[in-house]
């Protein structure tokens, strides 16, 4: 989850723009993480040392690991460890940034340090999916003052990001939320949550994005927009809201009920209060997740 928000952080800092973010997300799957980046991330080497080895590699035909051992930066055991360790997701993102020429290895190192320090992220958290540490990050980025239960919304959004990772893929970046008096939909699936924490929830995206979203969710390629695509998106929202309801009941004793799902196309969602939406950028398109304290009847 820290990886996903790192993209958001870079956007806010002006390091990359939205188009560049999309390109990085699209390239991420083909990125090969270099040994130097791994060594830097583990704290075995500094960016300068990595750069020095890269320069040496232009003079002699040797592998990075061999040269790093010769130069005394790494031990053979460390090279072995780096080659066999599972790659953390944020490293793939970082490598794609460097490979794309958006930042140098030095700049990446600094940005990572700033990012961790601004959000008080511990080293261990970077590979962690602890619910509490993600909630803190969600709380840092989004405010839900307009809602009756801000903590309920944080739980909702935290679970949403976890479910996206679980059911759709981890190659996304959530952007800052937009708050509007009304919202113009493209292809929107919605569901009202009723009970002690009443909320309108929705997913909105264009047709092409819906097809890819549904394909990922169903685990099979779907080519044309049809009722199965619509039902798949509905199924995702219903499943997510169901899990949220169960969590709220188990964790804080709040009982919720879900209304039937609805679908609107090219409509205006106008409620008596605000519509809060979070755009989430995937390589295949942008998915907007909607929330409002007031329910919507379609």
């Amino acid at each position: 989850m820290f990886t996903q928000f790192f993209g958001n952080y870079l956007l806010k800092k002006g390091v990359i723009d939205a188009d560049q973010l999309l390109t990085i997300l699209q390239n991420q799957s083909t990125v090969k993480i270099k040994l130097g980046t791994l060594a830097m991330c583990e704290g075995y080497m500094t960016a300068s040392e990595v750069e020095k080895i890269h320069i040496l590699q232009t003079h002699v035909d040797k592998k990075f690991g061999e040269l790093a051992i010769e130069e005394g930066y790494l031990t053979p055991e460390q090279v072995e460890e780096l080659c066999t360790t599972q790659r953390p997701d944020y490293l793939t993102f970082g490598q794609a940034l460097v490979d794309g020429g958006y930042v140098t290895a030095h700049e990446l190192e600094d940005l990572m340090i700033d990012y961790q320090s601004e959000h008080e992220i511990e080293e261990d958290d970077l590979n962690d999916t602890q619910k509490d540490s993600i909630s803190v990050l969600v709380n840092d980025v989004y405010t839900f003052d307009e809602f009756e239960s801000s903590s309920g919304c944080v739980n909702y959004v935290t679970l949403l990001f976890n479910n996206l990772i679980r059911f759709i893929g981890k190659d996304f970046t959530p952007l800052d939320a937009q708050i509007l008096p009304e919202y113009a939909t493209k292809n929107c699936t919605f569901q009202n949550i009723m009970g002690d924490l009443q909320m309108f929830t929705g997913i909105d995206m264009d047709v092409a994005t819906s097809i890819e979203f549904a394909s990922r969710y169903m685990g099979k390629t779907m080519d044309e927009y049809d009722e199965y695509i619509e039902a798949s998106v509905e199924d995702f929202l219903n499943l997510h809201n169901g899990l949220f309801s169960v969590n709220m009941s188990n964790d804080v004793g709040i009982e919720l009920d879900l209304e039937p799902l609805g679908h609107v196309v090219d409509s205006i969602i106008s409620l008596d209060s605000i519509v809060f939406y979070i755009p989430v950028i995937f390589p295949f398109g942008t998915v907007n997740f909607l929330l409002s304290p007031n329910i919507f009847k379609g």
């Binding site: 219903n238 499943l239 809201n241 169901g242 899990l243 949220f244 309801s245 169960v246 009941s249 009982e255 919720l256 009920d257 879900l258």
Partner: peptide
């Protein structure tokens, strides 16, 4: 039953 519909 979907998750979250226990009362129903």
């Amino acid at each position: 039953s979907s998750l979250g519909n226990n009362s129903n």
